[in-house]
Simulated assay, not measured.
Amino acid sequence: MKQYFRWVLKVLTVFDWPLLALLILMAGLGLVIMHSAVGGTDWRFASQVRNYSLAFIALWFVAAVPPKYWLKLSPALYVVGVLLLVAVEFFGETSKGATRWLDLGVIRIQPSEMLKLTVPMMLAWYFQQLEAKRMRLLDLLAAIILLAIPFVLIVRQPDLGTALLVLLSGFFVIYFAGLSFRLLVPLGVVMAVGLGTMVYFETDICKPEVDWVVMHEYQKNRVCTLLNPSSDPLGKGFHTIQSMIAIGSGGVYGKGYMEGTQAHLDFVPERTTDFIFAVYAEEFGLYGGVMLLVLFALFIVRGLFISARATTQFGRLLAGALSMTFFVYVFVNIGMVTGILPVVGVPLPFMSYGGTALLTLGIACGLLMSINHYRQPSQAR
């Protein structure tokens, strides 16, 4: 009996309780709003409960493994992920104009999701191996190559949303590893000038006959819809306009649980996945939206706190990158739902329906907990 209790205690100690409490709150809110979005308890609600269960199991398993083992596995996991992306290029299944899935017979997977984790792990492993205290130009170039390979392969699928998430997850590792802020200033200036030029010449560059060359037609349409949603209110701009109406109609206090008209009358498209925040904001209003953002902010702060306490370069870089990637998830999803960013198909963490995204987030949280629990050398043995 004593051995049993010791085992239970050991299992429970791997959890970071502040982080777990935030996850439980967000999961609870996610199931509540999912119940409303689907109009009751149907197969999607039951499937989402199963997805949460699998994500929690993955979280626990990953948290129980010391970071030193994840450090050793990082190069192999990265190589496997890249090889799977190459396999998608040649043998992938095409759906809705994009080739993102790979059928392995037993299971059907989307390898690009795996790279959201393996890319920052690989880069954190790389910088862990470097002996130099300051990043040299050669080190930066090698890191860029490691990041560029999966980014290009995912863009070719095409899946720009996931590619940007992978790119940013790797960028955060490079930045935390010591990338000089001075190198980012010219990049920021170029981006600002480019965005200003697009806004100024929106009428000309968004004409149907204009080819953007570097972007697919649907990607061009998304950017042009962001610049002027009313240009095609019943077509390309329908998603953005209806989600903005739903959020605005919620007001300060919201319409009440399961009382959202925009969602329940099918005006909000993809209301269980990418646009679930519109359903939430319509029913719970400004107060509910602020409460959810506070939960997300606390999660990010806790992740950065774990990063700051990490005793290894690998743990510090990986925890910091995962925390900031979570921020990007939230920023991009709410940005596209509120009409300040183009629609790129990024889910809202722990709220949107989907097993693959929840599993990825669960593993990421498990890595954070592993880094926090095994931060003492004596615990890593």
Rank of each mutant, 00 (worst) to 15 (best):
56 F>M: 13
288 G>I: 11
6 R>T: 14
342 P>N: 06
296 F>I: 10
341 L>W: 04
337 V>L: 02
176 F>P: 00
304 L>M: 10
323 S>F: 12
226 L>N: 05
305 F>C: 01
175 Y>E: 08
26 M>V: 06
173 V>I: 06
25 L>R: 01
274 D>Q: 00
94 T>H: 07
280 Y>D: 14
313 Q>C: 10
304 L>V: 08
3 Q>M: 07
149 I>N: 02
311 T>K: 09
143 A>I: 09
173 V>H: 05
29 L>Y: 14
38 V>N: 02
361 L>Q: 10
144 I>E: 01
161 G>I: 02
36 S>A: 07
281 A>L: 04
5 F>G: 06
293 L>Q: 07
302 R>K: 15
277 F>R: 07
174 I>E: 03
210 V>N: 06
17 W>F: 13
236 K>E: 13
31 L>A: 12
143 A>Y: 09
104 L>G: 05
179 L>A: 03
358 L>R: 00
18 P>L: 12
284 F>T: 15
16 D>H: 15
212 W>I: 05
113 E>L: 04
353 Y>C: 06
162 T>F: 02
85 L>P: 08
196 G>P: 04
322 L>P: 00
358 L>A: 14
261 T>C: 02
304 L>T: 10
62 V>H: 10
161 G>E: 02
80 V>L: 15
44 R>A: 10
11 V>W: 06
193 V>I: 13
378 S>A: 09
215 M>D: 11
14 V>A: 12
174 I>Q: 01
280 Y>C: 11
162 T>H: 00
124 A>C: 03
248 G>Q: 07
42 D>H: 15
228 N>V: 00
99 T>V: 04
316 R>L: 12
367 L>A: 05
298 L>F: 14
91 F>K: 11
298 L>N: 13
254 G>N: 09
42 D>I: 11
205 I>R: 01
199 V>A: 01
50 R>Y: 15
128 Q>C: 05
263 A>F: 01
225 T>P: 05
95 S>N: 03
116 K>M: 08
168 L>A: 13
94 T>D: 03
163 A>M: 06
66 P>Q: 08
144 I>A: 04
135 M>D: 09
377 P>Q: 12
148 A>W: 03
336 M>N: 02
195 L>V: 11
170 G>Y: 00
75 P>F: 03
349 P>Q: 05
73 L>R: 05
321 A>V: 09
361 L>M: 00
123 L>H: 14
83 L>E: 03
171 F>V: 03
260 G>I: 14
19 L>G: 09
347 P>Q: 02
79 V>G: 06
95 S>F: 12
320 G>M: 14
100 R>M: 08
151 F>G: 07
262 Q>F: 04
219 Q>F: 12
276 I>W: 13
134 R>Y: 10
94 T>W: 05
92 G>H: 01
32 V>K: 11
319 A>S: 10
53 S>G: 13
269 P>L: 05
196 G>T: 08
319 A>C: 03
150 P>H: 13
10 K>M: 08
